[in-house]
Structures are given as structure tokens and as C-alpha cells.
Write a protein that binds this DNA or RNA. Structure first.
Lengths: 130, 130
DNA sequence: CCGTATCCGTCATGATACTG
DNA sequence: CAGTATCATGACGGATACGG
């Protein structure tokens, strides 16, 4: 009765080579749990407050329910997200971030700044070439 | 005569839905150029100074030459990295980051901090469960 | 040393349809 | 609404060999 594939909790990246040291290892550890296109946008959007499945989908733009479901399960398993179920009809489910997700605030803030500036850079360099 | 697949320069993520606003769009723009396991570690390791192909491979731990080659090309195309060829025998090639890559310094710093703390958290929680 | 070529496998992501 | 089932594609990677 497995739905798609079992999801194992992330532990740590196996960065065994001694040459892979200090900073690189730390960054690879971070990306190991925050892999893929969606985890950081997801944590960011939930940092604005708890949201329902459909609302998350809308706020991310174009994620499919299958991927969103998988990403949320991974984040839950790694203690970034909590799932709340309310026995309404139909059932209501909300997702909220854990305090641990808050430790990513600075990362997300810097990334947001960079993304904003990057978009601006692309747009203006386009105009310049017209 | 294509080698593997053609690499197109990134421009901008198509985040069309109006609902996908502000912060989420910016973060998705950022991840759109910095996608995958290797780009941030790569830029980070090159931020320590220009390095040769083999040295980059060693510092990242376990990337294969095929993938490293592809990632470097993408970063070159998007103006994060410059490739320098020296006519020695055998030929020497170094890679260095552009000034634009420096705009990622804060992101990389925060990510490095977070990765370091995250590893610590995992390790100590392991000990606690013994 | 600096890569590229080829074969081949696995995993991530996605489009679409569907269920409770 | 909150997801799951099915099918498909492309990214990513391992192994190995080879060329400038």
C-alpha cells in the first residue's frame, strides 16, 4: 500500500572526502535538506502564517498537488512544518512552520533580496540591448 | 555535434500567476539561476580564489567531471564565472568568479552558518537518542 | 591536466485524471 | 477541498574510455 515512494528522513549529507572542508561542507549540508525547487519558497510562504493546501498551491504559482504533497511530507519529516487536521466537512488541513524553520529567516531574507536585485538586473540589461 | 544537451542562458523564471507575489517570486527567481546541488557550493569554493578544474573537483568532494563541466558552463553563461585558459603544456585552465558573484556573499554566508548549525543539531540529537 | 563521448540507471518534476 | 494514481520527461549521476 505504498502511495508513491517511501520518504526517509534526511540525516546528513555524506561528505566524506577530507578535501571537502569547512564552508563547502556546511553549504552542502544545508542544500541537502533544502534541495529542489520548492522547499525554500514553501518555507518562505508559510513563514507568513499557516496556510491550507490549496492556498499554498496558489501562492507558489504553479506547483502540482503531487509535488506539493511530497514536499510537505519531507518538510514535516524534517521538522520544518507541522500539519493540522480539522474535522470539518469537508476536512480542513493547515500547514504551519515550526520554530526551527525560523532559523532560516536570515537565509530567506538574503535570498529574497538577491532575487529581487537579480530580476532588476536582467530586466534593465534587456532594455539596454533594445 | 551536440555534446550532451545545449545550454540556454537563464533569463527569468516565468512566474505569471498574480497570486505568486513579492517574496515568493523573488526567491523563485533566485533559485531559478542557482538551481541544483552544485551551483552554490561551486560559487562558494571559487569565492576563496581562482581554481583549476581538478582542484574544484577535489574541493566539492565528489562531483564527476561531466557534471562539473556542465555546471561551470551554465555559470559562465550567466556571468557568475570566468574561464581562463593558459597555453602551457599541458594546457592550464582556471575558473574565477565575477564581481556579480560577490553579490551572493551574504546569501552564502547565511547558508554556511545555517548548515553548520544544522549539522550540529543533527549530531547532538543523535547522541541524545542513544 | 582538462575535459568530452557513451551507455545506462535513478530520481526529481510534471501533466492529467481521479477519489473521498 | 485535500490529496492520490498513472504515465511521462528530463535532470542528475556512475562508470569507463578516450582525445588534445
Amino acid at each position: 500500500m505504498k502511495t508513491d515512494t517511501e520518504i526517509e528522513p534526511y540525516v546528513l549529507n555524506k561528505v566524506t572526502k577530507e578535501e571537502c572542508t569547512g564552508g563547502v561542507a556546511a553549504i552542502r549540508d544545508a542544500l541537502y535538506v533544502l534541495n529542489g525547487k520548492w522547499k525554500l519558497p514553501l518555507i518562505f510562504t508559510l513563514s507568513e502564517g499557516p496556510k491550507r493546501f490549496k492556498d499554498i498551491q496558489r501562492s507558489l504559482g504553479d506547483i502540482t498537488p503531487k509535488i506539493l504533497s511530497k514536499e510537505l511530507k519531507e518538510l514535516e519529516l524534517n521538522e520544518f512544518v507541522i500539519r493540522n487536521v480539522y474535522s470539518t466537512t469537508p476536512v480542513t488541513v493547515t500547514y504551519q512552520i515550526t520554530p526551527y524553520s525560523r532559523s532560516l529567516d536570515k537565509v530567506l531574507l538574503e535570498l529574497k533580496h538577491w532575487g529581487t536585485n537579480h530580476r532588476q538586473r536582467i530586466v534593465t540589461s534587456r532594455k539596454a540591448s533594445n
